[in-house]
Design a protein around this nucleic acid. Sequence first.
RNA 1: GGGCAGUUAGCUCAGCGGAAGAGCGUUCCCUUCACACGGGAAAGGUCACAGGUUCAAAUCCUGUACUGCCCACCA
Length: 901
Amino acid sequence: MLSKTYEPKQIELKWSEIWQEKKIFSSKPDSTKEAFTIVIPPPNLTGALHMGHAFNNILQDILIRYKKMTGYETYWVPGTDHGGIATQNVLEKLLKTEGKTKEDLGREKFLEKAWQWRKECGDTILNQLKKLGCSLDISKENIRFTMDEPRAQAVFQAFKSLWDKKNIYRGIRMINWCPRCGTALSDIEVEYEEEKSKLWHIHYPLETGEKGLIIATTRPETMLGDTAAAVNPKDERYSNFIGKKLKLPLTDRIIPIIADSAVEKDFGTGAVKITPAHDINDFEMGKRHKLENIRVISYEGRMINCPEQYLGKSVQAARKIILEDLKGLGFLYKEEPYKHSVSKCYRCNNNIEPLVSEQWFVKMKDMADTAIKAAENEEIKFYPSSWKKPFIDWLKNIQDWCISRQIWWGHRIPVWYCKACSAEGLKFSKTGNLSRISFKHGAKPIVSFNRPDKCPLCLGQNLLQDPDVLDTWFSSALWPFSVFNWPEKSHDLDYYYPTSVLVTGYEILYLWVARMLMSGLEHMNKVPFPNVYIHGIVRDKHGKKMSKSLGNVIDPLLMTDKYGTDAVRFSLIFHSVGGKDIQFSEDIIIGGRNFINKLYNVSRFLMMSIKENEKISYNLSPANLKLADKWILHKYNKTLAGLSDSMENFDAANALNAIYSFFWDDFCDWYIELAKPRLETAERSKVLTVLLHIFTGALKAMHPFIPYITEELFLNTKKHLPLSKRFLADNLIDKANQNFICENSEKQMNSIMGIITQIRILRAQFEISPAKKINAVITSKNSEDLKVLKENADYIAFLAKTENLQIIENAEKPKMSASAISESFSIHIPMGGLIDIEKEKERIGKEYAKTDKELCLWNDKLKNENFIKFAPQTEIDKINQRKTEALEKIEKLKILLESFK
RNA sequence: GGGCAGUUAGCUCAGCGGAAGAGCGUUCCCUUCACACGGGAAAGGUCACAGGUUCAAAUCCUGUACUGCCCACCA
């Protein structure tokens, strides 16, 4: 005897092994089939899988499995991302636990460690995805890595091609610098956090010593790098000051007062300090007014080029001392509380320093224009479509992309310099390593994947590679075609590219999706995917983002251990509607677990019902079917239609919902309950046929969502099926079959179910034990309606537990009976002396009042001339119908009330 | 500062022009031979607020108020 509750653990383990072993997820180009391809958003090598990963990958798995089971050649391409800064930070932390820094190791040794790390933890995440049931072929030869050889070739090719078109350049610009990570970042790698700070008002006296300007700032420490002060040219308060000179407090420097319309009159004091080296606005203004850039903050985030007492101090420390000094010298005019947003590094959350630096950039304007066109004419479509506009807006405001990173882990920039020819532009660190390149000062680039033999200019052989690496997103941007070994030409690339859909959270829409689109159009001349499915973020039950620091992280693997993978998958998808964020908690998994258990028990019921070697007809021809069979087949096929509609729109939640409520509400609660007595009759074979047909059909339809249990139950069911494939996943999901659609069966079953429900209500109201059989009289004026009831009286007898059920035209209400109305039927249950007449009168009275109110509503509507004039005929017919029904019901209730007199 | 969502039963959310829905929770009845991770029944809602369009509005429009995101260089 099988356990009453489903134990998922061993079963899931078993199947995940078998699926991999039998390679059922591997794919080969098959010209007889249409390809359906997804490239996995490659997870970073930074640690374990979180709920967000789980959700993202489950969605993809559902699409892949669904498409496979509807006849496509599916390929879900697995891989991991080296993850640049993020991974390097993890490695640095690891080193720290050994008391070491990366400098202690040196670049080469550090990279050895990194590759070691990649070996150790590289595929852990893919193994975790395997546990989640993801239909990825994770055999070694199938897994891609953004830094393996073929991907490195792709990166070089992309770099080279952009370089040749002059779309990659070296420039001196204001960039975002993370002093903690020691690298430049692109604009979108900066996050902003609101912080409570202060606005300090500082007096900058005139060079004569007279009262000068009061300047408001949030960053007093940068004043050491001020090279001007500015006011709005239209600001009358300051018109006399323009052109005069100020003496910069704490220094000996004299700076001019300039006029620039970028200065807001109404902010602060209307006068602003200008630090071109450390503020993006000031940098621009500096260019306009030809101001000097004085850098006072180093790449390490320490004060430089300033009076001795501040030298070498951190930004924070310097701020404190400077404020004290200003106060002591009487320059600090006032301070007021101020909230403003501070830029933070998206990888380590430390403050970003904007500073001027020479870096590598990609020109974005033209590529963005092409991408905008593709988005506008929907060569690429967004689900939900509301993302289209923000996506296009972002592209329209795009800035050039800073792609060089001063870290070690990543694709080294494929540019070399001759030590002789570029001497002036090369700087070396104390340890003798090439540390900075300056094109401005004469570095001459040679673009090459491998070290060139000799310098093309002087034939010198001392060539050094650029020390920087590329932004990790540079290689991710090529992912949809680099996974197929582009630039190599291959059948795979032709067959699988463009991929079918990209599934991602909105947080990397710009960072990644936009760049893939631009890269795809640039290098392949085709969008990388025609559809982008954007889902929400998994939050905690209070709507907070899950984060380690908040301690509200739910580990998906812990949950799958506890409740089963299927339960977790079910719950996540069930709650993921319309691309919105999911508020996830352990509670909601329980709902999923319960459903899985229900499914399991239906299977138990079936296996217990079918005898060993029992012959089953498998005949679903209409002549062989009774009302309940026609009805459930009708419902089933309607559900299939809904399922496929939803899946075509990437609406997995809705699809799951449809099949869920069909299975539980229609199939379990009604069809199976009716099947039980029918199995004891001559109808046995046909009932088993329908049961098996619907059950296996449901297994197939549900398999994309809950693969493990369905595969397991299919294995148990297989022996009773006429023909079956190896695995459930090898089967095709049934297509909705118009021949089974039978609206009449639905109408008739609704009548019967309505009556059964009414009798159940009466039982509950009169506290009749569910076990007790009761007599009942059902009557109607309509002999056609009664005929259907008579033919299916068993259904009522069984589910309402009646004996001596009388179905009679125009019958009188038996004395001392409880009554209810359903459609055209009156239902009476003789109660003998047990009935409380007053209570029954009150109950019927309430029903009467309610129906009367309804009737008024319909009457009012129909009396409304405008309604008759403007409403569509179908609507009027409907209201008329309702009016008739209400009238009928009133009539019947009246008779009931009469009977109490 | 701009943009985009959301505001429906105690909680999480469907519905998005034609009689207010689901799941969970709550209350009552039931261990009947698939399932108590179950079955049956019930309670519970001026659909944020104010206007408007319409024969008809939770649903469309316009405001308002919160809430949450995203974007933006206001010191």
